[in-house]
Amino acid sequence: MSDVKPINPIVKQVLELGPTILFFLIYLRIKDDTFVIGGTEYTGFIVSALIFVPILLVAMGLLWRLTGQLSRMQVFTAVMVIFFGALTAWFNDERFFKMKTTIVYGLFSVLLGIGLLRGQSYLAYVMSEMMPMRDEGWMILTRRLCAAFAVLAVANEIIWRTMSTDAWVKIETFGFPIALMAFLMWQFTSLQSYLISEETDDAS
């Protein structure tokens, strides 16, 4: 595995969050327009979703070039965006792009759940180097995050099936990320007692 190169935190945040924000802004600009491509009419939402795919890939390419590494979650998300973006364009049906969020959150919940059934925390496998924590703490966080992803998956299904596209785009862009970030910050605060400090390591 190649070493991770240092990167300006602001640049990193722009590359990670920028594509989603751009999708939102592009959607706002063309949501009421209709585009004819290859003799087929597409809504502004579908065109925004298609534009989002290359924007995301360029951002990920720059992030990989600058850091020398991409997380498994980033790669998985990119694959899902490409796949469901292609289905959205092929069938000219925006529901595929909206379902993407349900499937991504659902798969995260299932994968964490499989690890829990095996008595393991796959979350620790991914994040233990960034945040040293005792096994008990990782199991608690994994159980809670497994449940949180399941709730987000169900919430997305309810929202896109019962609310307008405008509402879904806003919740997808801001609501879900903010909710997940707030949940994680709450968990990291509540699990402070399980963190392994350098002093503890030295003493042991």
Rank of each mutant, 00 (worst) to 15 (best):
I103N: 02
V151L: 12
N156Y: 04
R95I: 12
P132G: 10
S121G: 06
F108M: 09
M131D: 15
L87R: 08
M139A: 13
F149P: 04
Y125C: 13
I114H: 08
I55M: 11
L123V: 10
V79E: 05
A155T: 01
R143D: 08
M99I: 10
Y105W: 07
M73C: 05
F84H: 02
F97C: 10
M73A: 15
D93F: 03
G115E: 02
L145Y: 04
G137D: 02
M80G: 07
A124T: 01
I55W: 06
G106Y: 03
G106W: 02
F149A: 03
A86I: 10
V110K: 06
L87C: 07
L57I: 13
M99T: 06
D93H: 06
I51F: 15
L63R: 05
A86C: 09
F52V: 09
M163R: 14
V104D: 05
L66F: 13
T88G: 07
A153G: 03
F76A: 02
F83M: 07
W160K: 03
V58N: 13
A148N: 03
M73H: 11
L111D: 03
L145D: 05
E129Q: 15
V75Y: 05
M131L: 14
G137M: 00
R161I: 01
G113K: 04
R143C: 09
Y122L: 11
L62W: 02
F149H: 09
L111R: 09
L112Y: 02
T142N: 09
R95V: 11
A89T: 02
A86Y: 10
T162Y: 08
S71L: 09
A124M: 05
F108G: 06
L145W: 11
E157D: 08
L56F: 15
T67K: 11
G68P: 01
R143I: 11
F97I: 08
A147V: 07
Y105I: 11
V126W: 15
L57H: 04
S109D: 02
R65E: 12
A59M: 14
M130F: 15
Y122R: 10
D93Y: 10
I158E: 08
L87H: 04
N92Q: 12
L66E: 03
L107V: 14
Q69L: 11
L117Q: 13
N156C: 05
L62S: 05
N156S: 06
S121A: 08
I159F: 07
M60H: 14
L62D: 05
L87D: 04
S121T: 08
V104F: 02
I159G: 00
D93T: 01
E129M: 13
